[in-house]
Structures are given as C-alpha cells and as structure tokens.
Amino acid sequence: MDHHMSEDMDMDMNKGPFMWMWFHTKPQDTVLFSTWNITNAGTMVWACILVAVAGVILEAIKFTRRVIQKNQPNSKKESYFSRLLSTKHFLQTFLFFVQLGFSYCLMLIFMTFSIWLGLAVVIGLSIGFLIFGGKSE
C-alpha cells in the first residue's frame, strides 16, 4: 500500500464518522447520528452519562407500564373492544412505543463496540432496575 494512501486513510479516520467492528476503548465513535461524534475523553464521559440516564429512563418506563397494567380493572363485564379503546390502553401503547425506541437506541449504542458506551448501557439499565425493577405491588 502506498505511504500517501495510508496517510490519507489515517486522516479520514480522524474526521469521523467512526465505525468499529471490534470492541475497543478509544474515544473515537459516532453514536446514532452523524453529528454525535465522540473525539476525546471528555465527550466520551458526557456520552456515557447520557446513555446511562437513558437506561434508567427505560426502566422507569417499563415500571410505569407495569403499574398501569396492575391498576387496570379486570372487569369481565367490559368488552374486549372497550378495553382496547380505553385511555389507559392508549397510554400503555404510547409508553410501549417509547420503550421500544429507547431499547433499540440503546442496542445500537452498544453496537458501537465501545467498551465505555457498552458499560454505560449496562450500568444505566442496572441502576434503573435497582430503582424500578422490584415488584410494583
């Protein structure tokens, strides 16, 4: 490989977007959007904090859905369609939509193969489970 070609490739890698196919510890990542580039330790710390908070929020959403489900009356008199069209069911459906979005975003963040971002996902979800993961009864 030509020496100049190698330098050009190195320069391109320093501009981003960064995509790794193996686990790494370097603070060079592009997260979810082409504009969310991690280029140094400081931006990595902030990204990890944000990702961990997203994990806690995801567990809070799951907890909220469980509470709503528990508080929903189990009336046999109510028809399937009236339960389906109830306000609580629409709220649960919206929360499920948000939960899926958060879940897939966290999965994609883990798939950056950054050890630090992966740990942030796991730590955030674990803290969320610690706070919200108990039985809702």
Rank of each mutant, 00 (worst) to 15 (best):
W22F: 07
M111D: 10
S126Q: 09
C48E: 10
M44K: 04
Q92D: 10
F33N: 13
F90T: 05
M13I: 08
F63R: 14
G134E: 12
R83V: 08
H3I: 00
W46N: 15
W22R: 02
D29F: 01
I61W: 02
V53K: 01
A47E: 10
N40M: 01
L32T: 12
T87W: 02
F102C: 02
F132H: 04
S103F: 04
W46L: 15
D2W: 00
V45H: 05
D10N: 06
F90R: 00
M21A: 09
V121Y: 05
L84S: 05
I68G: 07
A54T: 12
F96N: 03
I57Q: 09
C105V: 04
M1Q: 09
F132K: 03
M19K: 07
F18P: 13
S75E: 11
M5V: 00
F90L: 03
I131D: 07
H3E: 15
H3W: 05
F97Q: 01
W46T: 15
H24D: 11
W20A: 12
F132R: 02
K70P: 08
N37R: 14
G42T: 13
A54F: 10
M19S: 11
G128M: 02
A47R: 03
V56F: 05
H4F: 08
K26N: 11
K77R: 04
S75N: 11
N40I: 03
K26I: 07
F113S: 08
T87D: 10
I57Y: 12
A52V: 12
F132S: 05
V56H: 06
F23T: 06
F102K: 00
W22V: 05
K76F: 06
S79N: 04
V67D: 14
S82T: 04
K88N: 14
I109L: 04
F81P: 07
T93M: 04
T25V: 12
F94C: 02
A60H: 07
T87P: 12
T30F: 05
I68D: 07
G16N: 06
D12C: 03
K62T: 10
F18I: 06
V53C: 05
W36Q: 06
V67H: 10
C105K: 00
M13E: 14
D29Y: 01
K76P: 15
S114H: 02
V45A: 11
L85Q: 01
L130T: 15
V31R: 01
F23W: 10
M111Q: 07
V31N: 03
T25L: 07
E78R: 00
W22M: 05
M5I: 00
M13K: 06
S6K: 03
L130F: 14
T30D: 10
D2A: 03
K76T: 12
L130I: 15
W116E: 11
F97T: 01
K76A: 12
L84M: 05
S136T: 07
V31Y: 01
M19Q: 11
M107H: 02
S136C: 13
